[in-house]
Design a protein around this nucleic acid. Sequence first.
DNA 1: CATAGAGATTGACATCTGTCGATATAGTCG
DNA 2: CGACTATATCGACAGATGTCAATCTCTATG
Lengths: 116, 116
Amino acid sequence: MNSLQTVEPALDQACCAPSGQPVLSAEEAQQKALVFKALSDPNRLRLLSIVKADASGESCVCDLTEPLDLGQPTVSHHLKILVDAGLLHREKRGTWAYYSLVPGAIEKTAGLLTSL
Amino acid sequence: MNSLQTVEPALDQACCAPSGQPVLSAEEAQQKALVFKALSDPNRLRLLSIVKADASGESCVCDLTEPLDLGQPTVSHHLKILVDAGLLHREKRGTWAYYSLVPGAIEKTAGLLTSL
DNA sequence: CATAGAGATTGACATCTGTCGATATAGTCG
DNA sequence: CGACTATATCGACAGATGTCAATCTCTATG
């Protein structure tokens, strides 16, 4: 947009040094943003919390619909997003679908932050 | 929506134990989602990365506009979101505005995840 | 004081997202 | 096989979000 580099050969008072270095690339950023986008909805955070808190380590949709006060299709939708983000694992046994945390996924996501 | 509790007094094959416990409340979830929402955009992640990578620890808007290939108003908008989320600190000196990481904010956010 | 430059704010617009109702699919049981 | 149940998928729609052009504000400087 502006043409700083070309028009001022010797700007004596630059606002700060242009570091312009190998920071997060557009592709990396896009990739990482997907995970945080999955975490950016209150109901999805609550889903993760419920699944994590469950003693058996897994929960079915019927147990997740009530506490969130959302329709079943909506909960299914949120769960799919969490699965696609690599945070939840889905296993269908009989009529029910069981969701569980992907081991290490939370910690790995936390690592994404600290290694920004 | 459904009336599970009332119509089946003795369901002999529940899909799983209804833990229904003190998981993340709606308010807590809303609060935490705000931070992750701030992180859910690729360009904002890159902004954080650039600010963090800068040797001086602070960057001005003019240095952030070019590498992101975005207009100045858009960058200002993203920066405001990051400041509101408590991730960046803004300090205006003279004509320029300098942005820096809020100390410990990244780590604190990572902690939000692991303590879900 | 007038001018110029940095950055914030506003308004508009296209796109994305969360939600629901309706429907489809698949497993279970009588 | 036929009814029932648990989930997933589809279509629609309101509201949120990212982006830009235009404008405003504030500071420095001639």
